[in-house]
Structures are given as C-alpha cells and as structure tokens.
Amino acid sequence: MRSDSVLPGPCGLCGSAAGVRVDGSWHCAGCGWRYGDVPDPDLPFPRVDVVYYLRYDRRVKIGTSRRPRQRLASIRHDELLAFEHGGRALEQQRHREYAALREGGEWFTLAGTLERHVRELRARGAPWTLYARWVAEALA
C-alpha cells in the first residue's frame, strides 16, 4: 500500500517535507530515505561524484566534484543548472562533446547541443533533489 502526503518532519537527509507512506513507514518523496533513519556516524559518508553545470551569464562551467556544496560555494556563478551522476571520465566526455562551444578552460557557450543537454538533465529533476537521492541510494 502506498499513499503520498507530508512527512511528520523534514527529511533528515535532504530536508524535503514531501513524503510517501509505503507499507507502514514514511519515506522521503524527494530522495527516498526512510524517515527516522539516521546514517551511521561511524561509517564514512559515501562518495557521490557529480558533473555540475553552472551558468554565469551565457557561459556554462562543466566541472566535477565529490563535495558539490563546498565546490559550488567557491565558484562565482548565477545559477546551478544541473547535476549528472558521474565523475572525471564523464566530465571529460562532456568536454569533448561540446569542444566546439569551449570558451576556455571548463567554460562553454550555453547554446545548441549543450543547451539541449542541460534542458534534458533539468527535466530529470532539481539538482539538489537528485543529489540527495544518489546519496540516499549510496547510504542504503
């Protein structure tokens, strides 16, 4: 049995209030974490690598991080456009794919195929919600 509603309190992993009741227990609708569960503090936090897409004006930085909150805080940008689950190999693949749009370093013009790719990624969900889901999956 499943029903959608509001969690008794915010999700301990991602902070979402949306909940799903599955067979008698609450789960976060955003990341899937079971409400009330606490990650084991004795275990290391799981490594979840992401490729990020940051917009600054009409340019996009394609980079990677295993600590995106910390990394994004150190980069000047207007908007976090999207996350993709993956590490350095995926980042390098994206750099090759969009090489014709490269402005320098990891910065690309937001146009054409890159703009379409970002739209497709955004259609999958909000970046931080996706990241929380990937962390929840790694912790499970």
Score class of each variant (00 low, 15 high):
Gly30Glu: 04
Gly9Met: 01
Pro127Cys: 07
Glu137Lys: 06
Cys28Ala: 09
Tyr53Asp: 06
Glu91Pro: 12
Ala100Val: 07
Ala136Thr: 05
Gly86Trp: 00
Arg67Asp: 15
Ser16Tyr: 00
Val135Gln: 03
Arg55Trp: 13
Val6Glu: 14
Glu115Asn: 05
Leu81Gln: 05
Gly112Trp: 06
Gly36Lys: 08
Val51Glu: 04
Cys14Tyr: 00
Ala100Gln: 07
Gly105Lys: 11
Val20Ile: 15
Trp107Val: 12
Leu80Thr: 13
Ala140Asp: 09
Arg2Gly: 09
Thr109Lys: 10
Pro46Arg: 00
Cys28Val: 04
Ala18Lys: 11
Tyr52Trp: 13
Arg2Trp: 11
Pro127Met: 07
Val38Thr: 09
Gly87Asp: 00
Arg76Asp: 15
Thr113Arg: 06
Arg55Lys: 14
Met1Val: 13
Arg88Phe: 05
Ala100Ser: 11
Arg133Glu: 03
Val60Asp: 01
Asp4Lys: 14
Thr64Leu: 10
Phe108Ser: 01
Glu91Arg: 15
Ala136Ser: 14
Thr113Pro: 03
Tyr53Asn: 04
Leu7Asn: 03
Gly112Ile: 08
Arg124Ala: 14
Cys28Trp: 02
Glu84Val: 06
Leu7Ala: 04
Pro8Asp: 05
Arg69Cys: 08
Arg47Asn: 08
Arg124Pro: 07
Asp57Gln: 13
Lys61Asn: 11
Tyr131Leu: 03
Ala18Asp: 14
Arg94Phe: 11
His95Ala: 04
Gly9Leu: 00
Ala89Gln: 06
Leu110Glu: 05
Arg47Ala: 12
Pro44Glu: 02
Leu7Val: 07
Arg124Gln: 15
Tyr52His: 10
Asp57Cys: 07
Arg71Leu: 12
Arg94His: 14
Ala89Val: 06
Arg47Tyr: 04
Ser74Asn: 13
Leu54Phe: 08
Gln93Ala: 14
Gly32Glu: 06
Tyr52Lys: 11
Phe45Gly: 10
Gln93Phe: 08
Leu7Trp: 02
Ser25Thr: 14
Arg119Ser: 12
Pro127Leu: 08
His27Met: 09
Gly125Ala: 08
Gln70Ala: 15
Gly63Asp: 13
Gly86Ser: 00
Gly63Asn: 12
Leu130His: 06
Arg133Trp: 02
Ala136Arg: 01
Gly24His: 12
Gly19Pro: 05
Pro46Asp: 02
Gly12Val: 00
Asp4Trp: 15
Ala100Asp: 10
His85Arg: 14
Leu139Trp: 08
Ala73Gly: 15
Cys31Asp: 03
Ala73Tyr: 03
Trp33Cys: 04
Asp78Pro: 10
Gln92Ile: 04
Arg58Met: 12
Pro39Arg: 00
Asp42Ile: 02
Glu103Gly: 14
Leu121Phe: 04
Pro127Thr: 05
Leu139Lys: 01
Asp37Met: 08
Leu80Met: 10
Arg21Tyr: 13
Ser65Met: 11
Leu139Thr: 02
Ala123Asp: 12
Arg116Cys: 04
Arg21Thr: 11
Arg96Met: 05
Arg2Lys: 15
Leu72Ser: 05
Gly125Glu: 06
Arg2Asn: 12
